[in-house]
Design a protein around this nucleic acid. Sequence first.
DNA 1: TATTGTTATACTCTATAACTATA
DNA 2: TATAGTTATAGAGTATAACAATA
Lengths: 163, 163
Amino acid sequence: MPTKKHEQFVNAVQEAADQPLNQEMLLSLVGYNCRRAYLSIMPLFHERMSELDLRTVDFSVLSLLHANPNITQKRLSNAINVSPPNLAILLDRLEARGLLLRQRNPLDKRSQTLILTAEGERMAVEAEDKVSALEADATSALSNAERAQLLKLLQKIFQPSRG
Amino acid sequence: MPTKKHEQFVNAVQEAADQPLNQEMLLSLVGYNCRRAYLSIMPLFHERMSELDLRTVDFSVLSLLHANPNITQKRLSNAINVSPPNLAILLDRLEARGLLLRQRNPLDKRSQTLILTAEGERMAVEAEDKVSALEADATSALSNAERAQLLKLLQKIFQPSRG
DNA sequence: TATTGTTATACTCTATAACTATA
DNA sequence: TATAGTTATAGAGTATAACAATA
């Protein structure tokens, strides 16, 4: 025999099931929306880059070394926000694949400088092409102007000094 | 005795050290910028929410249940993109803390509906206030109009159907 | 004494397989 | 037979502590 309280519960559950989800609060947060946008782009990255066997962080390293040959591990570590221990094993893997070289820094023998091999350069160029294309596909709902505006606004958040 | 090759290497290393890092490629990518912006907001989240002992995903759950009482675990799982096994233990913790209740769904006894306790409601309201404030601080480089524009552009990426 | 980089290790997050109960 | 949820477990990603070599 259903009590009144039980009836109210059944009605509340029915009503909840009938209504679309209210996500107003979460959708008002920049952090949440950044994460959702990022997570919506990543599957395409993994699909298209699995052929090159590169993760996002591997791509970041190749791309930065392509544009900045002979920088030290320290500067790379700071730039991509990967801790020295984790960068060490990441570089072990890329070096083992013949994509880059570590060389003792002649100006300060504590540090090591990094440079892509010829194969690493080829891989970097190919990866950059693939990523540019995949990005365009993942953000095809945006016009070029909107995309540029988005980049500007995001950079204001993590580079506030640059206005 | 330094070879010519070695001299060239020393010069290249010196030049690399003297120049600012070129991050043009990475900064042209929406995914990379989303991640950087997200990672710049998170430390503030952890600082301010450690008092409430809530992670981002815990906050998402409390906030969604606050706005959508009596929804099922299935709908919650879909909304926040957390797999059923991982959601189960997350809900175990919040239930053990007295923040929510799981109730067998009277309309389909396979599923369970979720509702915040009085304490859970208080926690949700307090957390939402804190998060709103922290978001404003983390994105203070943006005007209100820019912030609104940013949310719109990000949502276009992961909700392309909504234009 | 401080810095760069490495090794070892622990912790969190996320993903998968197998199971129970209900439809 | 299919679905909601749970348990157990494995893997990836990230963080910390201790160490060697150089400054």
